[in-house]
Design a binder for these strands. Structure first.
Lengths: 125, 125
DNA sequence: ATCCAGGAGTAGATTGTCTACGTCTATGAG
DNA sequence: CTCATAGACGTAGACAATCTACTCCTGGAT
């Protein structure tokens, strides 16, 4: 029974993240200090109570995107366990971007909230 | 200077909606009573304080999607001004879907909130 | 006559994410 | 020794949702 799901169903069920929020989440994670990709994934997972599970296939393209935009900078370093890892650090313009991402996010959340919990105002059954 | 924007820039600026939320918003609008496409767009725009501007190129595909899923049903009718319009009505399974969409949305908003306003817990400058 | 607003719709481009891989290194088990 | 596993980085291709940019129709104004 484990293989009875169509590709489409699996796709629909696995979407956990809203498009456009990943960049913001990564930048926020880097506000807590420089971090490498693997670490970012785990920080997001833990801090969100296992809700946000970012796949590496989403993460690395996002990190490269952010670096191209100049919002993060990176360098190779050694981890505690003596393995190579690429550490990312948020830049000044990244911090500005984060502020603007957050205000956009809050604007949208508020707008959606006013739809979802808003007063119908028009008499209905 | 009004034409100096690249297609990409324009695209980036015009995204107002998070992917995956449109279906929920449409279903919620229909909870207030049957409505036609044009009316849904305006209801969302007004109720959100001009924040949510849904394009017809997003709306109609979404409505057809919802109908294929059995979450809404539709029929041609005349508006007050005697024009033809396709009125959509939410179904029982659509209402169930709406409940589940909303709880998913709230789960994600909460998770993202716990990242964005969460305690770093680790001492930083 | 013509133009605009209300109304429904499609085609194509673009993007972000996911799945499913591949690669390398360090470490611990057998 | 060698083999599996976990930590770590990365890419290619599929896919869905959205946006832009149209088309088409009708009913009133001007």
């Amino acid at each position: 029974m484990s293989t009875s799901m169509s590709t489409k169903d699996r796709y629909r069920n696995r979407i956990e993240l809203l498009q456009g929020t990943l960049d913001m989440l990564i930048l926020q994670t880097l506000q807590w200090g420089p971090q490498h990709g693997y670490g970012i994934v785990q920080a997001l997972r833990v801090q969100s109570g296992e809700v946000l599970q970012v796949e590496t296939g989403s993460l690395y393209p996002a990190l490269h995107r952010l670096e191209r935009q100049g919002w993060v900078r990176s360098e190779w370093k050694q981890t505690e366990s003596n393995q190579r890892a690429r550490y990312y650090r948020i830049t000044a313009s990244g911090k500005r971007q984060l502020v603007s991402d957050l205000s956009r996010w809050e604007r949208i959340v508020e707008a959606i909230g006013s739809i979802m919990h808003g007063r119908p105002e028009e008499g209905e059954a």
